[in-house]
């Protein structure tokens, strides 16, 4: 088994697919520098830089995909989707429905997301629940390099639009580019198992909407995605020392959501705790509760999410984003 960092895994899976399928092209702001290894292997026709014009290049990616290309369009941060949401909300997500199922948009939007490095609330959002709210969009949020590469391959093969989110705390290269800038004087709480890990020799697509149990547990199942999975695993360790058996379920994609796994987890433990770095209200955590309630499963429920605009100051940010202490407290509260 070889090891790779998170973003290396995505780029490697992308390169593997690009070598097979000449219809895959990659574009976005500063891509010639950020994806220089793809540029020197696949050339400037397939790996392109764009102006800072998200409405234009994400909008253009939609119809380029409809015309037969398989575009991977990159945003600097998912936050900047605010500038060009129309392309996803009103176009990419709706073409298949509007065309009576006759025309699809095989587009991948790749964007870094998430906080934990002190960039402020306009640059550290998660927004996966907000995107998953829109019918027609697939939203993938991997937590490990192996999942990142495999799911990226899936996204490339998917016939509809996929938003693929890379948490910046898991991505060595994004953290270096946007955070440390080569400094040795700053520290970030990076979950090691998410930032670097074993990957297969040859990438194979992983199924969409299939959660994975990262840790079994009998008393409570902690449900999460991306960095939250690793925070949940830390919390589960602490809880074990207190005699509480907490499992961790990694959703891997927010849409489609693995409702079967959620119902099974609720059934088996009777307690769910959702750890979601995205905003608390009207989002993923509420959706998980609805899935279980609609199935008529009696369950104790709690959630540890981001409740407010993410503050710039690191010490405030660390409290606002889900952390081990908050997860432990939420679970203890359910157990008492």
């Amino acid at each position: 088994m070889k090891k790779m960092s998170f973003t290396q895994a995505v780029d490697d899976a992308l390169a593997q697919a690009m070598a097979k399928d000449p219809q895959i092209i990659v574009f976005g702001e500063d891509i010639p520098l950020l994806r220089r290894e793809l540029l020197v292997r696949f050339g400037p026709q397939r790996v392109r830089g764009t102006p800072i014009s998200e409405s234009a290049f994400v909008g253009a990616a939609v119809t380029a995909a409809m015309a037969g290309l398989r575009p991977v369009v990159e945003l600097y941060m998912v936050d900047f989707l605010g500038v060009c949401l129309d392309a996803l909300l009103n176009h990419a997500a709706k073409v298949e429905a509007f065309s009576g199922g006759k025309w699809s948009v095989p587009l991948v939007v790749r964007a870094p997301c998430g906080g934990g490095y002190g960039d402020g609330g306009q640059h550290e959002q998660s927004l996966w629940g907000w995107l998953a709210h829109i019918p027609g969009l697939t939203v993938v949020v991997p937590a490990t390099p192996a999942d990142a590469g495999g799911l990226f391959l899936t996204a490339l093969q998917h016939e509809g639009p996929v938003v693929f989110l890379e948490h910046k705390l898991l991505s060595e290269s994004w953290l270096e580019f946007l955070g440390s800038g080569g400094r040795q004087t700053v520290q970030y709480n990076v979950p090691e198992a998410g930032a670097r890990g074993e990957v297969p020799q040859i990438w194979k697509p992983l199924p969409l909407g299939q959660a994975i149990e990262r840790r079994p547990g009998g008393d409570v199942m902690i449900v999460s995605a991306a960095v939250g999975v690793h925070r949940a695993l830390e919390a589960a360790e602490s809880l074990e020392q207190q005699g509480i058996s907490a499992g961790v379920l990694d959703l891997r994609s927010v849409s489609p959501l693995d409702t079967t796994a959620l119902r099974a987890a609720a059934q088996n433990t009777g307690r769910l705790c959702v750890v979601d770095e995205d905003y608390e209200g009207f989002g993923l955590s509420g959706e998980v509760a609805a899935v279980v309630l609609e199935a008529g499963i009696p369950v104790q429920f709690s959630r540890v999410c981001t409740q407010s605009t993410i503050p710039y100051a690191r010490h405030l940010e660390d409290q606002v984003l889900p952390n081990r202490e908050r997860i432990v407290a939420a679970v203890q509260n359910m157990m008492s």
Binding site: Q16, A19, K20, R36, V40, F42, G43, P44, V47
Partner: peptide
């Protein structure tokens, strides 16, 4: 695997 050397050079 990838594009011919001429195109790679253009990338470089």
């Amino acid at each position: 695997d990838g594009e011919p050397f001429r195109i790679r050079l253009a990338g470089l």
